[in-house]
Nucleic acid binder design. Structure first.
Lengths: 213, 213
DNA sequence: TTGTTAGACTTACATAGGTTAAGCAGACTT
DNA sequence: AAGTCTGCTTAACCTATGTAAGTCTAACAA
């Protein structure tokens, strides 16, 4: 529905949002005009869980596409969490996974070279969207400009373009406009050293039995 | 007390630790032998809060110095959180701040050049340790080798050395061995574009009134 | 039709930072 | 005291990535 900023750095925030449809990204200024993308949110993600704990936001949240968002007053989330511990626990899991993704981004930007960085970024996006399961020929749409991919990976748009071309030349991906097809998923995953462990798929800690009886 | 690993990547973890004394760091492998430092813990920090939510760990936690750690069984933390909502809330705040620090590290590594990266790292460490308040002449001890600073900032040890020398030449810091003195705190902060906002000092969201009566 | 814009794509060139190698100092062993 | 280690330091060289500038296309507006 909305487009543009959902949250602004420095804001006092009193809502938690659920992204019903579309894509958003978190962004921080480095203090000299450069912007770094620090997170990505896809349909179903909860945005701004930290508002439950921190009075002001330290980063912007912006829409990448047209989005559909449910904004829930903080007090409602607090009441819900208090009365339904299982929901509080689920929010905690969500937050912990987002934190794990941030750690992996630090590794990606800090330790990998350009090619592996872009490859890893593509892998993560695909797995998070479940796109890699679907018909490979169909591919998926990456709703970001090369400039934005650069801001997420700590590279310039020019270099992102080079790396995408290299991945294509290596027969790992096919592309047209923003559509990406994995011609060789295994190969791409190997280049990126991608493992989905940090996304913590599968089981998490079950909600402890709060004996309120 | 202990030295070496506190937690290993892939472990099933059933304790939460409180770092009573010393320094620890979080570390992840990039899949090709390079190690990236993804977090730092100082005295008073709680380590492994994500174990409340995730069954396995996605990163190592290692001691940087001799450390004194209290390891608390997960079940005890769960019980404490259930019976004392204010404590659960405090843990949430702690976790949210750690997440905010991770975001800032992404910005630091992804958007800043070597000099500003190292400067920012020094600023963050100093502020987190409160060292910048104390007698500037005394300085503080940074318990990391230049190799480790490099792993935290995404640079090589050689380049960290160059940057430290440059910061010294600019009259911003003095050093001898691992002792760092801020000869010009304002100057260093400006170079780094450091603002402590992301550490969320001061007030956070007060614990909501859980009416259990 | 013409203009305007945003983004993909390319080339030529510049440089920050990586690599390798070596010297040196302090701490620890034997 | 000789040997070994780790970490700091410096220098020479190299390359991955950034910078600047331009072309091309698609979409859109007047």
């Amino acid at each position: 529905m909305a487009s543009g900023y959902l949250v602004r750095q420095g804001d006092r925030c009193d809502t938690v949002s659920v992204l019903l449809d579309g894509y958003c990204y978190g962004q921080k200024d480095d203090g000299e005009g450069n912007c770094q993308i620090v997170s990505l949110a896809i349909s179903g993600d909860v945005i701004g869980l930290e508002h439950l704990y921190l009075l002001t936001t330290d980063h912007n949240v912006r829409a990448l596409t047209t989005v559909d968002v449910a904004m829930i007053p903080l007090s409602a989330v607090q009441q819900l969490s208090a009365s339904r511990p299982a929901i509080a626990h689920a929010l905690g899991i969500h937050q912990a996974i987002n934190h794990a993704i941030a750690r992996e981004w630090i590794v990606n930007i800090g330790a990998r070279d350009g090619l592996r960085r872009v490859a890893h970024f593509l892998c993560e996006f695909a797995v998070r969207c479940d796109a890699w399961r679907s018909d490979t020929a169909a591919g998926y749409e990456l709703p970001m400009s090369q400039e934005q991919i650069g801001q997420a990976t700590g590279l310039t748009a020019v270099h992102v373009n080079r790396m995408l071309k290299t991945l294509h030349a290596a027969g790992l991906i096919e592309r047209s406009w923003r559509n990406v097809v994995f011609s060789n998923w295994e190969g791409l995953r190997d280049v990126a050293c991608f493992s989905s462990d940090y996304l913590h798929p599968g089981r998490q800690v079950p909600a402890p039995g709060y004996r309120t009886v």
